[in-house]
Design a binder for these strands. Structure first.
Lengths: 234, 234
DNA sequence: ACCTGAACACCGTTCAAGT
DNA sequence: ACCTGAACACCGTTCAAGT
């Protein structure tokens, strides 16, 4: 992985941007656990301590990595209607996150938002306000959206529950159905609407994300039109 | 923190349950970062390797800690109406999680559900089915609920954004308002409905959680009554 | 057979010694 | 003044030596 470097050949000097991009590439290629200060330094052909001139510590490195990903989210498109505009923006964030599978975990783990993160959130809040939402309703609506503004949801059954081998999958499914009949039933129902096979290989995450997003946006729309306030409906 | 032990005094022999309870207590008292195999062993007055007879490795320890917390969730109460029954159960899960602030982070981090976790999820699925929901709709509804079945949401602004000192808070608020006017506005609106002060000390998390939960449950109810299916409405 | 201390291969970060 | 190797205080886990 680490690029060889002939003696005497000078590397372009490090800067914060190169450090962050290398960290993102390393996480993309080898997973987030591969992003240690020592490992990243080796990847860049420098001594670990050299990184500390460009990021104060590992937390700042992770914040910077998040900022790189947030930078990949499309800016708001024109259009006066708040619902399709917000929907499109959030699905753009989702595409950025799907390109970097480690990013949602890192976003969740950050205790404080960076300036870049605040910019993104501020602009989403602004889109609700431009759509005529009261500050009060917008506040609650942002909380209800939660991590979905980033285009991800906390999955209850991460990874595919069943192995690829169909025979082994059938056995495990019978086990599952015996102990957890209700879960087995809804796993089956999901597979049925995909390709008709009895044992599902997993869920259509994009469908599930849009289902929940639209349910929320429709709910917001209804409350907005009813003139909802936190003191009681008008 | 570690209990002193006189020479020759025999401790009750370790077992899996005592290990898990000690880990939960350690996380409650000193935070989840204090739960290392070495630190936990010291707390129990044993050598680190002694733990490995009761849990295979650290991942299994964390799974076991989650199981302890899931065990604190009230069993389903009687009653034929699915909505209040599910609402009550999820709010019970929330109370368990609030008693152990580290638990939501650990739940999020587990790559596979344990048997105890599957039991809880299976019973929630069963409550929707008992309420007359189709397997198809129940599937999507469980995804839409996401981590909210555990009684938590990923917070966008974790911690209180402003310091306790009112003068310092006012200065920081002016900074915030300059760069992020929309965010400043909804922070203000939240405070206003609490106690009328201009600068909010934070949000009412319980209100926000119930707002989003009810919005979702109401949405589920509406789809259910419309006979919604993933192939298109009936 | 059972238990456990030392060791291994890592961390993030500090700091003093070297150029 | 700048850079960096060694060191510090940790990890989870393996393994062989000791009882």
């Amino acid at each position: 992985m680490a690029q060889l470097q002939a003696d005497g050949v000078r590397r372009a000097p490090l800067n914060r941007d190169r450090v962050l991009r290398a960290a993102v590439a390393l996480a993309d290629d080898n997973g987030i656990d591969a992003v240690s200060m020592r490992n990243l330094a080796q990847e860049l052909g420098v001594v670990p301590m050299a990184l500390y001139k460009h990021v104060a510590n590992k937390d700042e490195l992770l914040d910077g990595m998040v900022d790189v990903i947030v930078g990949e989210i499309d800016p708001p498109a024109g259009g006066s209607d708040w619902k399709p505009a917000i929907r499109r923006r959030i699905l753009s964030a989702r595409r950025a996150l799907l390109r970097h599978p480690w990013a949602s975990r890192v976003i969740e783990s950050r205790p404080r938002p960076t300036l870049v993160v605040l910019d993104y959130l501020n602009s989403i809040v602004g889109m609700f306000r431009a759509g005529g939402f009261s500050a009060d309703l917008t506040h609650h609506v942002m909380h209800a959206l939660g991590s979905r503004v980033w285009g991800f949801t906390q999955e209850l059954f991460p990874g595919s529950p069943l192995p690829a081998d169909p025979e082994l999958a059938a056995t495990m499914f019978r086990d599952l159905a015996g102990r957890y009949p209700h879960i087995a039933e809804i796993v089956t129902s999901a597979a049925a609407h995909d390709d008709g096979s009895v044992v599902g290989g997993g869920c259509d995450d994009q469908f599930e994300f849009e289902f929940a997003l639209d349910l929320l946006l429709d709910g917001f729309d209804r409350l907005h039109r009813q003139g909802w306030t936190s003191r009681g409906q008008a």
